[in-house]
Design a protein around this nucleic acid. Structure first.
Length: 763
DNA sequence: TGGCTCTGCGCC
DNA sequence: AAAGGGCGCAGAGCCA
């Protein structure tokens, strides 16, 4: 069938060197190619008709703009329209990204192939059902509501404005079984005009059918803001897709293009200023959400459904934590901001004076480059580690370097963390997104209400942390899984030395220092006093461990540790004086590899092997949370099925950054899974448990810790959190040995006075 | 002015 | 030749 079809690729001159990659994807189909600029659609159509071309893959931005419609004020980007389908004058168009993506983006060959098939093999696509929609009217709502009572599933999408914070309209798409047994859809949009329309929104939200959202925490936060909840939220397309192909984009525009042959990116419609367009756009969003979910169900492999079942429940504790937020003391914040500003101004004045009054912006990489070039530096980058490197050249460079870095730090503190207006009624909110990472870690961003902070990277310095205050009568508590990733690395790789060193009662970094450098452990650490006896050497071991964990090369270790630190290490360890910093770094890394010989050798090889033969990384771990306990046999059966599974588009055998990414994945992912299980337990056993909920507030998960508030006098709740987190795990190591271990959790409670502030985490 | 990319940097 | 993982946000600079 494809032989009869005549298609065309219309791109740009930049595509030329990648055309052979396109050819290998289209197979035997006849595809004309034009890379010169075509000024109008008429010209393009004429050219196409002369050659009986019926379908065009389009990568010319100005033509896309004409195709999308002149009424749109928006400037369409190819990326947001990738995979979109449009039809005009009998010619089908599919929008593609520049062919360069085939080389630069790991998943591009996969997505291109899928989008190309929209024209090459349309018969393989699910048919797109007809789109029907209606706008709310007082006269139609009752009847439509009655009909929606019979829906199989209902998808929901809302539109909002940021200022004021409100919902402008809500769209519901019901999926129904028709008389013939086929599925059909019907979409309904309710603009929020008054209390009466709001009542209808609330009634639709309470309908019995399971609900589908695209990133539902966003919509539900707004509903909650208005006092409406949603009944039976079970499905979410962002989580569903993430559970399958986590490395791919997850926005609704992309998902629509991915699953629905005739889908088009229509966000730009919302910008035309026409309210009917706006409502139509809202309707199409919920319609697409429904289709994406249904087609996902038809296509996904079993392991992705399993991933979904692990991931989706996390949404609820995340929502609770997001909507709780942390109180920010505005007086302390404003004072801290002013104090920092004075310091910034003083330092800036110093630099300016030295430059004869000329203005200079330390935040501008361009200006910093110019300055360092004038000072005679061969500048590659003006980031911190490079400035520290340049500073060794000459005291004058150091003079500027230290000031520039100081100013940048202070500016970051103010602009990101202390600036006014981030709070929502005095609280800092945030989003916790289980669909945000490839490893099943949560990602964090500012809150859906367009305010707040990313909660995972709050500066630990006192001026920022002191602004965060516990609610009246509460104290902060934080429980973290100790050395979790190193422990996980040991058990996953099966490196006995690492298992031994990380799971004993001794200080991990000191025992490493002892093993790396042949020193006596007793000279390095006092187990009784729990104190390091040689902090510099312990610190070297710590940084080497950190670097080696991420498969760092010697040069990068030089950059991260810095030349002075390496010189210091050279002296402390009595290494030959003629060694260069790079040689010292190489030596340090070699000591790590000699101590843990299975990591770089066997384990990395097994990861590469798994990815290139199966395109997946499967977690082989079982968390002991079932009650009653499972038999050993059943545990092994479950491990053989596998836990969190990541579909991999990278090539770890050919690309070091892909390899680094994939070797970092298993421990990071296993730790995340453990913490996620703990997160669920804390949610159900403490935060939502009527016995404790009054005295406990769940705040956040921060990579290896859980942050919470407990009411004064209820310290036992902190102990409960710790118990929830200490989950035994059975892991099948790369050496084919099953081992069971538990990562211990350590509680940090703010001791009064000061426990009402978010404590600075020490280390 | 808005949107985009790049740089730099905060945390684990 | 050389190659540090995972995130998100602010500012600079550039473009239309």
């Amino acid at each position: 069938m494809t032989q009869n079809k005549i298609l065309a690729y219309v791109g740009t001159p930049e595509d030329k060197e990648y055309l052979h990659r396109l050819k290998s994807l289209v197979g035997t189909a006849k595809v004309f190619v034009r890379l010169d600029e075509i000024s109008t659609l008429v010209e393009l159509e004429l050219w196409a008709k002369e050659r009986s071309i019926t379908g065009i893959f389009l990568n010319q931005k100005h033509l896309l703009k004409k195709l999308v419609g002149v009424e749109s004020r928006a400037n369409p980007s190819l990326d947001s329209y990738q995979g979109s389908y449009l039809k005009r004058n009998g010619i089908e168009y599919v929008v593609l990204n520049p062919l360069e993506h085939l080389v630069k983006v790991n998943y591009a060959p996969f997505t291109f192939k899928r989008f190309l098939s929209k024209l090459l093999t349309p018969e393989k696509w699910n048919p797109t059902p007809e789109f029907h929609w209606k706008l709310y009217e007082p006269s139609n709502c009752e009847a439509i509501y009655e009909r929606f009572k019979t829906a199989i599933v209902i998808s929901i999408d809302i539109e909002t404005t940021e200022n004021p914070l409100r919902i402008t309209c809500c769209s519901y798409t019901g999926v129904f079984s028709s008389a013939t047994g086929a599925l059909e859809t019907y979409s309904y949009v309710i603009p929020i005009k008054d209390d009466y329309t709001w009542v209808w929104v609330d009634r639709f939200n309470q309908l019995p059918a399971p609900k589908i959202f695209q990133n539902g925490k966003y919509d539900i936060s707004y509903f909650l803001h208005y006092g409406s909840s949603v009944h039976n939220y079970l499905f979410d397309t962002a989580h569903a897709f993430h559970a399958w192909l986590s490395e791919l984009p997850k926005d609704l525009g992309f998902l629509g293009a991915f699953f629905v042959r005739e889908a088009m990116y229509w966000k730009d419609l919302a910008k035309t200023g026409d309210m009917m367009d706006y409502y139509l756009y809202n309707a199409k969003d919920s319609w697409t959400t429904a289709l994406v979910f249904l087609y996902w169900l038809l296509e996904v492999p079993e392991w992705a459904v399993q991933n979904y079942c692990d991931e989706f429940p996390l949404v609820f504790p995340c929502l609770l934590a997001e909507m709780t937020g942390i109180k920010q003391d505005q007086e302390i914040r404003a004072a801290a901001y002013a104090e920092t500003e004075v310091k910034i101004n003083d330092l800036t004045a110093e630099i300016q004076q030295s430059l004869g009054g000329r203005s200079f912006n330390p935040g501008s990489p361009k200006q910093c480059t110019t300055l360092f070039k004038i000072l005679g530096v061969d500048v590659t980058s003006t980031d911190e580690k490079n400035i520290l490197k340049y500073s060794l050249i000459h005291p004058l460079i150091e003079w500027y370097g230290t000031r520039i870095l100081q100013i940048r730090k202070l500016r970051k503190e103010n602009s990101t963390y202390l600036v006014e207006g981030k709070n929502y009624h005095g609280r800092i909110l945030y989003a916790l997104n289980p669909q945000g990472t490839d490893s099943s870690r949560l990602a964090s961003s500012k809150h859906h209400f367009w305010c707040g902070l990313q909660i995972h990277n709050i500066t630990t310095g006192p001026s920022v942390r002191r602004c965060f205050k516990a609610d009246e009568g509460f104290y902060f508590g934080e429980a973290d899984l100790e050395q979790a990733e190193s422990r996980d690395t040991g058990y996953i790789s099966g490196d006995e030395n690492l298992i031994l060193n990380v799971s004993g009662s001794k200080d991990f970094h000191s025992i490493n220092a002892s093993a790396f450098f042949g020193l006596s452990y007793n000279d390095l650490y006092d187990d009784v006093a729990r104190r390091s006896k040689n902090k510099p050497i312990r610190n070297i071991a710590k940084r080497v461990n950190h670097g080696a964990n991420y498969n760092m090369g010697a040069n990068v270790l030089v950059d991260t540790m810095g030349i002075p630190a390496l010189r210091e290490a050279q002296k402390l360890l009595d290494l030959p004086k003629i060694w260069s910093p790079k040689t010292v770094a190489e030596y340090l890394l070699s000591r790590f590899n000699a101590t843990y010989p299975k990591l770089k050798g066997q384990w990395y090889a097994s990861i590469i092997q798994e990815v290139i033969t199966t395109t997946m990384l499967v977690s082989r771990a079982y968390h002991h949370t079932d009650s009653p306990p499972l038999s050993e046999q059943e545990i092994r059966r479950r491990i053989s099925i596998g836990g969190w599974t990541r579909y991999c588009f990278g090539r770890p055998d050919k690309n070091k950054s892909d390899l680094n990414s994939y070797v970092a994945h298993p421990p990071q992912s296993l730790n995340a899974q453990t913490l996620n299980k703990a997160w669920m337990r804390v949610f159900y056993e403490i935060a939502m448990n009527p016995q404790f909920s009054r005295n406990f507030r769940l705040l956040a998960q921060i990579h290896d810790s859980i942050l919470f508030l407990y009411r004064r006098g209820h310290e036992y709740l902190a102990t409960k959190v710790k118990e929830c987190m200490e989950i035994p795990v059975t892991v099948l190591g790369a050496d084919k040995v099953y081992r069971t271990f538990t990562v211990p959790a350590a509680i940090k409670l703010g001791a009064p006075p000061g426990a009402e502030f978010w404590h600075q985490t020490g280390d």
